[in-house]
């Protein structure tokens, strides 16, 4: 297990390193960073001064490590359009994204797992096919389009639900559903196949042969043992929310990190997007590493692979 975790930790550091090199490299590919801050009325003196301030007079690798050191201490530079520290903008957006992702994740478990169990237990019946249909649709409907259709239907036409911003619990309903559907489809499929595998095993057949009641077989013997793959993979799915939150926040004007990223793209604000990308990458690899630890703890067999 230790070897596995060390290996994963190494991967994590490597990913962070590669992404930081990429961001730094692209920043330099863009040309002299002074162009981003100064206008055509800049004097020669100001130009040179800014070069010293930004550390452009030093060798490239020194510049990189200075930049990385600053980034790790929370200094992500100044955004171009808003002229305020990038770290500040990011910090301000974290809660909204976190709430949305957490709510959608819980939704996907609440919907996906029971439907998966039901689908496995009632295999081959209408219930099974309805469950699988729910999963099929969830994985084929484009989230960005689903969001728009829901807004059209429930906000514009029926006027039941609010469509933008984030003010009360009602504002959560549509974003959470849009973000959670495809994930709950994945949860359903995982739960279903894990459950089917266990239901097919010898000890379940033996329990049935010994006359244990059907509900006891399913909920006491089968369900508990089939929970391992869904539990471990559900955390992996949490990390995969990254793309989804960007789309959903964009559609529902949700004031989170994903929307910040799209704003940065639309305004061509390189320092801002670099900061968001670095932060998101760090959060992502850290989350994945935590998942690996959980995985190793829940399923000790991992040490053999």
């Amino acid at each position: 297990m230790t070897t596995f975790l060390i290996r994963r930790a190494f991967t994590m550091v490597l990913v962070a390193f590669v992404v930081s090199i990429l961001v730094f490299g692209l920043a330099r590919v863009q040309g002299d960073p002074r162009y981003m801050y100064l206008s055509e009325y800049t004097t020669e003196e100001q130009w040179d001064d800014l070069g010293v301030i930004l550390g452009l007079d030093r060798p490239l690798h020194v510049q990189y490590f200075t930049w990385l050191g600053g980034a790790l201490r929370g200094d992500l530079g100044i955004s171009l359009r808003e002229s305020r520290p990038v770290a500040e903008s990011i910090a301000e957006r974290i809660p909204a994204t976190f709430q949305l992702a957490a709510a959608a994740w819980i939704f996907s478990i609440i919907v996906g797992w029971p439907l998966g169990v039901l689908s496995a237990v009632k295999r081959g019946t209408v219930m099974d096919y309805l469950g699988r249909g729910f999963a099929l649709f969830g994985q084929a409907i484009p989230a960005f389009w689903l969001g728009i259709v829901l807004i059209l239907l429930f906000a514009e036409y029926l006027q039941w639900l609010p469509s933008g911003r984030r003010e009360g619990w009602a504002h959560f309903i549509m974003p959470v559903f849009v973000l959670g559907w495809s994930t709950s489809a994945a949860q359903l499929r995982l739960m279903r196949s894990a459950m089917l595998e266990v239901l097919d095993s010898e000890y379940i057949k033996f329990a049935r042969a010994s006359g244990v009641s059907n509900s006891k077989v399913i909920y006491k013997y089968a369900l508990r043992n089939s929970l391992i793959p869904p539990i471990t993979l559900t955390f992996l799915l949490l990390a995969s929310f990254l793309t989804g939150t960007i789309v959903v926040e964009h559609i529902f004007a949700w004031p989170g990190l994903g929307r910040l990223a799209i704003e940065a793209v639309n305004q061509n604000d390189f320092p801002l997007i670099a900061g968001v990308v670095l932060f998101a990458t760090l959060a992502y690899v850290t989350a994945n590493f935590l998942v690996d630890i959980c995985y190793a703890l829940i399923d000790p067999r991992i040490q053999f692979s």
Binding site: V19, L242, T243, A261, A264, V265, A274, V277, A280, Y284
Partner: peptide, 8 residues
Amino acid sequence: PFIMIVLV
């Protein structure tokens, strides 16, 4: 994180 690379 794939989408982040695309963004940058």
